[in-house]
Amino acid sequence: MEKIIFKEEILIYFDELIYILFLEEYFGYVENAQQYVDKIVNFIINDISSFPSKKSPSKLQYLGSNYIFYKSNTRTTWYIFFEKRATNFLITGIINNHCEEAKEFK
């Protein structure tokens, strides 16, 4: 049975992301921002073992050895970085295509 573990920094990031999305007025209600983040987390939990992963670009290896991506809407793609050992996944980093680091994917 697979085990998915999130580094503490990632869990903190998700909590902060909810409030950033609300404060920056991407969502009018905190609940909607929470649902948006929940969809990212659910994708990771439900699909990380079956979604085709790729080796991280060398300049982004500090975020994790492998990554998958989640397209949340037409403008935003999330890159989820992880380490895998047997059937265990450690989620070690997350960025989106709006970040400076995402230029490494082009």
Rank of each mutant, 00 (worst) to 15 (best):
M1T: 13
K3Q: 12
K3R: 15
K3D: 05
I4W: 01
I4D: 00
I5Q: 11
I5P: 04
E8T: 11
E9V: 13
I10V: 09
I10F: 05
I12P: 08
I12E: 13
Y13P: 01
F14M: 03
D15H: 14
D15L: 15
E16S: 07
E16A: 08
E16T: 07
E16V: 03
I18T: 02
I18C: 01
I18K: 02
Y19A: 07
L21I: 00
L21E: 01
F22I: 02
F22L: 04
F22Q: 05
E24C: 06
E25W: 07
E25V: 09
Y26Q: 05
Y26H: 07
F27Y: 05
G28W: 10
V30D: 15
V30F: 08
E31A: 10
N32Y: 12
A33S: 10
A33D: 07
Q34D: 10
Q35E: 08
Y36V: 01
V37F: 00
V37E: 00
I40S: 04
I40G: 04
V41K: 02
V41W: 00
V41T: 01
V41I: 05
N42F: 11
N42K: 13
I44V: 12
D47I: 11
I48P: 05
I48M: 06
S49N: 11
S49W: 07
S49M: 06
S49Y: 10
S49A: 13
S49L: 07
S49P: 03
S50K: 14
S50W: 11
F51S: 13
F51W: 09
F51M: 15
K54H: 14
K54T: 13
K54I: 14
K55S: 15
K55N: 15
K55Y: 14
S56K: 01
S56Y: 03
P57G: 06
P57Q: 09
P57A: 06
P57W: 08
S58M: 13
S58G: 07
S58V: 13
K59C: 14
L60A: 05
L60D: 06
Q61A: 15
L63C: 06
L63P: 04
S65C: 06
S65I: 04
N66A: 09
Y67H: 10
Y67E: 10
Y67F: 14
I68V: 06
I68S: 01
I68W: 00
I68E: 00
F69A: 11
Y70L: 04
K71P: 10
S72Y: 04
N73Y: 04
T76D: 03
T77E: 08
W78L: 09
W78M: 09
W78I: 11
Y79S: 01
I80H: 00
F81E: 03
E83L: 06
K84G: 05
R85C: 08
T87P: 04
N88F: 08
N88G: 09
F89M: 02
L90F: 03
I91R: 02
T92E: 01
G93S: 09
I94P: 01
N96R: 08
N96D: 09
N97V: 10
H98A: 11
C99M: 10
C99Q: 13
E100C: 12
E100T: 15
E101D: 07
A102W: 02
A102G: 03
A102M: 04
A102L: 03
E104V: 08
F105T: 05
K106Y: 15
